[in-house]
Design a protein around this nucleic acid. Structure first.
Lengths: 160, 160
DNA sequence: ATCGTATTTGTATAATTATTCAAAATGAAA
DNA sequence: TTTCATTTTGAATAATTATACAAATACGAT
């Protein structure tokens, strides 16, 4: 599914950045961002993302993402952020994208991308400082960039 | 109120120890323990205690007490736990309680107690290793102890 | 005590959230 | 492709949780 993970990442970001106090409010924001969904889907997504609602002095209640879902995923996140630092640049040719990294980073970075199994990407091949990405037909350059940012949020600084 | 803190303490313990997945379930357990209350009161207590409901593989949803909503309060919590270590003992005389602490701990500990503004306590005066607590009329010794445990959970080991 | 004010609580209900069920979308296999 | 199984989704609704309001209770000041 292309949209499900995308949507859930968007939800996560909104929760993290904002002061959301109900699913309807979140729903409104998601729709402003162009997502089409209903409250039922939101409820399910929040369940999957393990989002919780706690009281908050200012707003009554706010949705939060419990910090340490577990040390595991926390370490994983910082490892991925670390790898994103190795990113140098990206160039396109037809339905191929070529990412240049700092020496030694390419294959680990490619593994992260592969594991995310983004719809936009058919496959990757990595050397020492270069990743070749084969894009799915019909995917634009900005589609691909967006999907990479979803996997590696830290790339936004370098690509936005 | 005498029962309010007692009740909230009981709620906290049940949440911490158990696998509660709805307010009705919690209500049932509370009633088994001899508390008289309604779902409305529970809802308000959970709000005050900042209890959250998150998804859980086994039960669907469980109530949890978020460890550290943020680094701030997390540091705060461990600071308070640290201070609780300074506690030596407590004795009563009429409506006064006298807490003995390790040297130097009394005033910081008193600040923590003051900030919590427990109903049971009218005021405190602290020296270097002694805190004098003036209890509100009608408050029993165990009421006071319960309210202190609510503020400094770590005291339970020494007072329970 | 009595009065006045503030807090706490239950009842009833509003508001919110979760789930059922059927339909649509997706993916895999032939 | 077609078919079958699986997953995802929305609409409707069930289930749960929060709150308005009024009654009860607690407290302080006469």
């Amino acid at each position: 599914m292309k949209n499900r993970t995308k949507r859930q990442l968007a939800i996560k970001q909104i929760i993290l950045s904002g002061q959301i106090s109900s699913q309807d409010e979140l729903l409104r924001i998601m729709k402003e961002q162009g997502f089409e969904l209903t409250q039922a889907t939101l409820s399910r997504d929040l369940k999957i993302l393990k989002v919780a609602k706690v009281s908050d002095q200012a707003l009554g209640y706010v949705y939060v993402i419990p910090e340490g879902m577990n040390m595991e995923s926390q370490r994983e996140t910082s490892r991925i952020n670390f790898l994103a630092d190795g990113f140098r640049d990206i160039q396109f040719s037809g339905n191929l994208a070529v990412i240049k990294t700092m020496p030694g980073y390419a294959s680990s970075l490619a593994v992260v991308i592969d594991n995310a199994q983004p719809y936009e990407i058919i496959g990757t091949i990595a050397g020492d400082d270069t990743i070749l990405i084969v894009m799915r037909d019909g995917i634009t350059q900005s589609d691909l960039i967006n999907s990479l940012i979803l996997i590696l949020p830290k790339l936004e600084e370098k690509l936005g």
